[in-house]
Design a binder for these strands. Structure first.
Length: 553
RNA sequence: GCGCCAGUAGCUCAGUUGGAUAGAGCAACGGACUUCUAAUCCGUAGGCCGAGGGUUCGAAUCCUUCCUGGCGCGCCA
């Protein structure tokens, strides 16, 4: 709808240049069209005349006059007005709007999808928690946001891959191995002293017990081999936990990428050599450095330490270089906000390799403050006194949990109140939206009982939808596709949540004020058609975010 | 000290990427179930958009200087 109008305006503008009524020849890249806050200002509004004021060297309202004259008689528009400092306000013909209902009916679960991103390959890498323990609640937010960003991008036509990067190399893995080994020795009757830097949590003992029953006792191997063996076992085991917890949360990855495999395939050295050849790295004090300061970082960063071992940054660099080798046009990383200091060095690395900085987008996920009844729920890291994702999802439910994580922009901190999320009452916005869907389904059941079928396109007399509330609902439905596009282009899935709440509110209000199934069959059919379009869009938006659309509640 | 994020109604947050009179949900108060599900609706009240300065036709939004809160600033991961 918006695009059609935009096209009409562009045509009119060109026509004005052709017949000389406007002279600058300026063609803006995009005609800005917005939906005015005040409905008296029409369905759409453009500031085009104001932006042309400078190049045309005329008063905005004069330019608007010319444009409006050129647009006169356009079948899309019911009324065109010039207002304020030079806005052009459009009121579209009601008949245009009702076509949206036919579109929704025809497209069904595809309504809202578009092809804006067609031909662009994007990878979204998210969660990527160390496989040294179960996912906790903090990982949950990144998981849902990453998943939803990937989903809206897909809906906008981008080719998307979801990837989990497994940090299965480095110190934290040997710590895991050592911790399991010590618990194992304990099980074998030895008295051990558990180091403070070991993993204390209870699941380590679980892993040790499982190791013992599956692999038997450890004997006749060196300490290093024993740690290695325990580490491998632990990583594999923990990864199955993580994968299962994520699946229960509705999240599946296309690809699990092992850090260790980078080393096994000598990819790290290979990619570091490329950097060396390009003169981006240098050796100093026995270490290999990446010259990130040339591209905006505060200081240069070490890739290979003076003892010959690699930094975490080295494998990260290799990993990201390899992502682009795999043919992705754009790469999105979802990180915890505490890692924000890494952005400049990663972008610097890409800049050094000739990538524009926008090719890597890092979404920072701010902290989750877990509350219970309004009081902070403190979690200790080392002590193992943390709430796992699995526990939270089990307690509050998958839909409520996902909804809460998506309710806010990801770069603002989130208060997550367990009691609030669990409540099945009016305080809980997820049920508010789902209830709207269930209500339409309920109407359908009543209609079926009365022998009224849900109408198809062509069986409707649109003149029966004459209420302002009905036209407003249709307009809201028409906004869904552009909402998805804007959520995708800005990587902000919360926009879809707000859209859902708005649509549900409009529907509930309409439902309370008017009956859908009335005595007059033509009116019943028309209204049934309308509310089922609402149902389709509610379901599409809910499913897009990985939420269920229940038929009864 | 430097950097990143945030600061909007009593609370939690939106704000269409610079547009017209700044919005919603909770909480408060007053109403609506003989009628398709009251997990709902209708109404009232609530504001120096952290503060100052700047940019322009126009600023919650962009620039700048402060203030407050959170998080970072390793040859750790």
């Amino acid at each position: 709808m918006k695009d059609q109008l935009r096209l009409a305006i562009q045509t009119a503008l060109k026509q004005c240049y052709a017949d000389g009524s406007l002279t600058s020849g300026e063609l803006p890249d995009e005609v800005q069209l917005e939906i005015p806050k005040n409905p008296e200002h029409g369905d759409f509004s453009t500031n085009l005349a104001m932006t042309l004021a400078k190049p045309e060297r005329k008063a905005p309202r004069k330019i608007a006059d010319v444009l409006v004259a050129a647009l006169q008689g356009n079948p899309l528009c019911d009324k065109i007005e010039i207002a304020g400092p030079g806005f052009i306000n459009f009121r579209l013909a009601a008949s245009c709007w009702y076509g949206v209902l036919d579109q929704i009916t025809a497209q069904g679960s595809n309504y809202g999808r578009s092809q804006i991103g067609a031909g662009t390959k994007i990878q979204v890498e998210f969660v990527s928690a160390n496989p040294t323990g179960p996912l906790h609640i903090g990982h949950g937010r990144g998981a849902v946001v990453g998943d939803a960003v990937a989903a809206v991008l897909q809906a906008a036509g981008f080719e998307v891959q979801r990837e989990y990067y497994i940090n299965d190399a480095g110190n934290q893995i040997s710590t895991l191995g050592r911790s399991i080994l010590l618990r194992l020795r304990e099980l074998q009757g030895e008295t051990i002293e558990f180091p403070v830097d070991g993993y204390q949590a209870g699941y380590i003992a679980e892993l040790a017990a499982k190791y013992r029953s599956e692999q038997g006792e450890l004997s006749g191997v060196s300490e290093a081999e024993a740690i290695e063996s325990c580490a491998r076992f632990g990583v594999a085991e923990v990864l199955t936990w993580i994968e299962a917890d994520l699946r229960d949360f509705g999240i599946e990855f296309d690809h699990w990428y092992s850090e260790k495999s980078l080393y096994d395939r000598a990819m790290v050295d290979q990619e570091l050599n490329k950097l060396k050849e390009k003169g981006l790295s240098f050796t100093e004090e026995g270490a290999l450095w990446l010259r990130t300061t040339e591209f905006g970082d505060d200081k240069d960063r070490v890739l290979v330490k003076s003892d010959g071992s690699y930094t975490y940054f080295a494998s990260d660099v290799a990993y990201h270089m390899e992502k682009f080798d795999r043919g992705f046009d754009r790469v999105i990383d979802v990180w915890g906000a505490d890692h924000h200091g890494y952005i400049p060095r990663m972008k610097a690395m890409l800049a050094g390799l000739g990538h524009p900085p926008e090719d890597l987008e890092v979404l920072l996920i701010q902290m989750v403050n877990l509350l219970r009844d309004g009081k902070p729920y403190i979690m200790g890291k080392r002590s193992g006194n943390f709430i796992t994702l699995k526990e939270v999802v089990g307690e509050v439910g998958r839909d409520a949990c996902r909804f809460f994580f998506l309710m806010r922009r990801c770069d603002s901190q989130l208060d997550f109140d367990l009691e609030l999320a669990k409540q099945q009452g009016s305080d809980n916005p997820v049920y508010y939206v789902q209830y709207a869907h269930a209500r339409v389904c309920s109407i359908n059941r009543n209609a079926a009982e009365a022998g009224v079928k849900i109408p198809q396109s062509g069986e409707i007399d649109y003149s029966r939808l004459e209420l302002t509330e009905e036209l407003a609902l249709v307009k809201q439905l028409a906004r869904f596709p552009e909402t998805v596009v804007s959520a995708a282009l800005s990587y902000e899935p919360h926009r879809v949540i707000f859209y859902l709440q708005d649509l549900a509110a409009q529907f509930h209000s309409y439902y309370n004020r008017y009956r859908v199934l009335v005595d007059d069959p033509a009116s019943s059919r028309a209204r049934l058609y309308l509310v089922n379009s609402v149902r389709t869009v509610l379901a599409n938006a809910l499913h897009l975010l990985g939420l269920s659309a229940p038929e009864r509640m």
